[in-house]
């Protein structure tokens, strides 16, 4: 059975992780997710800086993206925690608050659009959880990642607001570890699993604080015996990839034992028979060899 979704690519993946975009289009249909592309989408817009600039504009632009899917009568699937955070919050608020919906539609009227509240938005992990099911995913895995110790990083933006996203336990998230297990690998436990990656500290100008934040997590991951990190948020991915390199300039313990990071879709691709070369591993910044049992 195929689940069809309109593919919301966002900004970070098409611009800085294009191999992930390519992999998603190639591998997700193999596990039952049919992705339809659109060139009408704009930036979601992001739930941190553009939301802070003007909340009315933020809501209207997100609603505009949703109306594109409503016209095509398709649900949206995104690969980015930030995009899902924005789209889910706006979708939920407009569906449940008639006054807010009216205000946003007043803005959308000027571009010939109207938010109706007829579709759902999902992150790819939510599609796996709710549509495909992890048990079914496990059966579809071709090359289980047996023996691979993976430190899952759930990130922040798929967890809260919990009453809207309803995806995982925000205090002690467990879904990402279950996903790692379904692919045959071994999720490792570490103290700071639910901590923020800290990339926004660098984006706001404090690179030292950002390095300190990511280093705390990386040391914990080292101590837990992780061979790999995995996350399904592109910002967090960048923090653990180029961010790890930057932090290792200040912290020699990181330089001595680098841990590569794989995006959720890249990990899936490995479990579906692809090699490190196939997934575009050479485009990563931290690219030490990974032993995968075949």
């Amino acid at each position: 059975m195929m689940f069809s979704y309109l593919f919301f690519k966002g900004c970070t993946i098409p611009a800085s992780l294009p191999n992930v975009e390519k992999l998603a289009l190639e591998v997700l249909p193999e596990i039952g997710i049919n992705l339809i592309e659109s060139d009408e989408f704009t930036c979601c817009p992001d739930p941190i800086r553009l939301k802070g600039a003007n909340q009315y504009f933020w809501m209207s632009t997100a609603a505009r993206n949703i109306t594109i899917a409503e016209e095509k009568k398709l649900n949206i699937m995104t690969l980015c925690n930030g995009c899902e955070n924005t789209l889910a919050i706006v979708n939920h608020k407009l569906k449940n608050n008639p006054a807010l919906k009216k205000t946003v539609n007043e803005a959308l009227k000027n571009i010939g659009r109207e938010f109706k509240g007829t579709i759902k938005t999902r992150h790819f992990l939510q599609v796996l959880k709710e549509d495909i099911g992890l048990d079914h995913l496990k059966k579809m895995v071709k090359t289980p990642l047996t023996g691979l110790k993976v430190a899952g990083h759930p990130g922040c933006h798929l967890l809260m607001p919990n009453e809207i996203l309803k995806f995982d336990n925000p205090v002690d998230p467990e879904f990402y570890d279950q996903y790692i297990e379904a692919l045959g690998a071994t999720p490792v436990d570490y103290l700071t699993k639910a901590d923020c990656c800290g990339i926004s500290l660098a984006l706001a100008g404090d690179k030292e604080a950002s390095s300190r934040c990511v280093k705390t997590k990386l040391i914990d991951m080292q101590l837990s015996g992780a061979q790999l990190i995995s996350t399904a948020c592109p910002s967090c991915f960048n923090q653990f990839d180029s961010g790890q390199l930057m932090a290792s300039r200040d912290y020699p313990q990181l330089k001595e034992k680098p841990i590569p990071v794989l995006y959720g879709v890249e990990l899936l691709a490995l479990a579906m028979g692809r090699s490190l070369e196939d997934i575009g591993y050479n485009l990563h910044r931290v690219k030490i060899p990974i032993k995968i049992k075949r």
């Binding site: 739930p47 941190i48 800086r49 939301k51 802070g52 955070n85 922040c156 933006h157 967890l159 809260m160 607001p161 925000p170 205090v171 923020c196 990339i199 926004s200 500290l201 706001a204 100008g205 404090d206 604080a209």
Partner: peptide
């Protein structure tokens, strides 16, 4: 206070 822009809405404070 420029630092307000450091907040990425991780919502640990909300939790």
């Amino acid at each position: 206070l420029n630092d307000v822009w450091m907040c990425c809405a991780c919502e640990k404070c909300v939790i």
